[in-house]
Design a protein around this nucleic acid. Structure first.
Lengths: 202, 202
DNA sequence: CATAGTACCGGAGAGCGTCTCCGTTTTCAA
DNA sequence: TTGAAAACGGAGACGCTCTCCGGTACTATG
């Protein structure tokens, strides 16, 4: 008998559990997209045809549920980094990815909660999504530094933080335009000082 | 008899009402600073020694209360714009004010809710605070445009939006530094394109 | 000062959400 | 087949928001 993994024969996960989990995620996704991140959890449980207890066992906190709902999307977003890096010059890849980020946020308000990890207290639960995004950003910034397109003291999280604002204040017809202008400002502001102008101070 | 104001003899406002209002504001300020914007309103009422009814009569929604609590601070912040504009060159005034904004946010999390007006649904209540801040920002940007320090197509709210992100993700020891770096990036990115230095491709 | 009229108070309580506890049911492995 | 572990699910305790309305305390007038 080939034991699944190592010692202690961990029982196979029950399939009803897995099924419930998936139903909850599906319903939750729809609820969050439709009613925002404040949708009633008991309501979600009801629609998924499980008891509140079941929901809370799978996802102990509201944050855990949101996290799980959006994880796959965030992963997709993060993985786009590799593609961009492979097919574009560093600075273009950086810009393109930031624009993609804007699009993701625009399409649904998906990434905001992940970026937003620290707003409402110490919820370490978004941490993994956040670091995915941050990792992608850092790679791109690093590459752009190496090519000399942006200053070596540029900090990826500075840029990321700026994007959070746009994601949260997303409103008004102007919004996407504003976000895209902001990307350009950020990139322009990260470029090396163009002329070796002799600065007298500092 | 000299009537206080015009017609219809509006009765003098009762002083206990005024007193209650002030007590509520005081307690609320402390509560919001200490427990964040989610503090229990009934709890605030209790500490202010009034019934919940009284609190809700004065401030029909949570937002109205927050708005009222922070209004004076926001006004002070906005008015600093005039001082800066009067005593500094445009670009310096802009930078200085943005840094002041960072300090305000750092000291307490005061301005965030005002900037953040649109996050959780259509609460038009921050609108006035928000437009105060936005007005200040726009004046400074306008002046900097006229002096040619920044590009004429720069949009004040773009910059403001970026600041919101920093204000919300305010955490970690690094935070204030990051915010200040971001201010520099934003300003650098808003400057006119410098002399077209010939870049020999990446 | 007395009186009338009203602006304001305050708390009981309905309604909604969150989250837990635990008896019951389902599934897996031997 | 069967025992035990795993998961279910809902009753219900608890906290928060917000309203309604009988009672109170203030202001203006005679």
């Amino acid at each position: 008998m080939v034991k699944k993994s190592s010692r202690a024969a961990p029982r196979r996960p029950r399939k009803d559990a897995q099924l419930n989990r998936e139903r909850i995620l599906e319903v939750a996704k729809s609820a969050f997209t439709h009613h925002g991140g404040e949708a009633s959890l008991d309501e979600i449980a009801k629609r998924a045809e499980v008891g509140p207890g079941t929901l809370y066992r799978h996802f102990p906190t509201r944050d855990a549920l949101i996290e799980a709902v959006y994880r796959s999307e965030v992963e997709r977003l993060a993985s786009a980094e590799g593609k961009f890096a492979a097919t574009m010059p560093p600075i273009e890849a950086l810009r393109a990815w930031m624009l993609l980020l804007v699009d993701y946020i625009a399409a649904k308000h998906i990434v905001a909660p992940a970026l937003n990890s620290v707003v409402g207290g110490p919820s370490r639960l978004y941490e993994s999504s956040r670091s995915l995004i941050q990792g992608a950003m850092e790679s791109l910034v690093q590459r752009a530094k190496e090519s000399g397109d942006i200053r070596p003291d540029t900090d990826a999280s500075d840029l990321l933080r700026a994007m959070v604002g746009v994601s949260l204040v997303g409103s008004g017809p102007d919004w996407q335009q504003s976000a895209k202008r902001l990307v350009d400002i950020l990139i322009a502001g990260s470029r090396p000082a163009q002329k070796p102008v002799v600065r007298t101070g500092a």
